Simulated scan of single mutants.
Amino acid sequence: MSKTHVKKGDQVQVIAGSHKGKTGTVTLVNAAKNTVVVEGVRPVKKAIRRSEQEPDGGLKTIDGSIHISNVKKLG
Rank of each mutant, 00 (worst) to 15 (best):
A32G: 04
V29T: 02
M1K: 08
K60V: 15
S2Q: 10
I66R: 00
K46M: 14
N34A: 04
G64N: 04
S2F: 10
G9Y: 05
N30Q: 08
H67M: 09
A31H: 03
T4N: 07
V36E: 03
A47E: 14
K33N: 15
T23Q: 12
K22N: 07
G17D: 04
A47Y: 09
T23F: 06
K73A: 11
T35D: 01
I68G: 01
K22W: 07
Q13R: 15
E39S: 13
S69Q: 09
G75L: 14
V12T: 06
D10T: 06
H67V: 06
V12S: 10
D10S: 07
I15V: 15
I66G: 00
R49N: 10
G58N: 07
T27Q: 14
S65M: 05
A16S: 14
V29N: 01
T35L: 06
K60P: 04
L28H: 11
V12N: 12
S18R: 06
Q53Y: 12
N34S: 12
K7S: 02
H19E: 09
V38D: 01
S2K: 13
E39C: 00
V36C: 05
N70P: 00
S65W: 01
G57S: 13
A32P: 01
H5A: 03
V14M: 05
A16W: 04
N34P: 00
G75F: 14
V26D: 01
L74A: 01
N30H: 08
Q11M: 14
K8Q: 13
Q13W: 05
K7Q: 10
V41C: 03
D56W: 15
S69F: 04
T25N: 10
R42C: 02
G58H: 12
H5E: 08
S18C: 00
K22S: 06
S2L: 07
V26S: 02
S2V: 12
T35R: 03
